[in-house]
Amino acid sequence: MAWQKLCPLEEIPALGARVVAHADGDIAVFRAEGDSVFAIADACPHKGGPLSQGIVHGQKVTCPLHNWNIELDSGHACAPDEGCVRNYPVRIEAGEVWLET
């Protein structure tokens, strides 16, 4: 595994996401409340909806297709829904976002 420098934190919209292409599929990097940053696979476990286009609230994202809520820190769907997506380690260093792939 290697750390990849993505961008300055300010380039990810507040309560939004940026998509990073990866060999295993796109990764959605989210900037949640309080400038917390999370990275998960950009495909809802329900029907593969693009989570990067969902609504971020707290430390969750709501899938734009069928309103499933996914926890950004773990990738797990919130009850009563079941399933999860892969999450990726991410960090902020000197205002820059780094992703471990």
Rank of each mutant, 00 (worst) to 15 (best):
M1W: 10
K5W: 10
C7G: 05
L9Y: 02
E10P: 00
E10R: 05
E10N: 08
I12V: 10
L15P: 01
L15I: 01
G16W: 00
R18L: 14
R18Y: 06
V19I: 14
D26A: 11
D26N: 11
I27L: 13
I27S: 02
I27H: 09
A28G: 08
V29I: 14
F30N: 04
E33Q: 12
S36N: 09
F38Q: 03
F38P: 12
A39K: 00
I40G: 02
I40T: 11
A41D: 03
A41W: 01
D42S: 08
C44I: 07
C44W: 01
P45Y: 06
P45E: 07
H46T: 08
G49S: 06
G49H: 06
L51M: 07
L51A: 06
L51W: 01
S52R: 02
Q53K: 15
G54H: 13
I55L: 15
Q59A: 11
K60W: 11
V61Y: 07
V61M: 09
T62C: 08
C63N: 05
L65G: 04
N67E: 10
N67D: 09
N67T: 07
N69E: 14
N69M: 10
I70Y: 03
D73V: 00
S74T: 15
S74M: 12
G75W: 12
A77S: 13
A77N: 01
A79Q: 04
A79M: 05
D81P: 00
E82Y: 01
E82N: 05
V85D: 04
R86L: 09
R86C: 09
Y88C: 09
V90P: 02
I92Q: 11
E93T: 06
E93L: 02
A94W: 00
W98H: 12
W98F: 13
W98N: 00
E100R: 08
E100G: 00
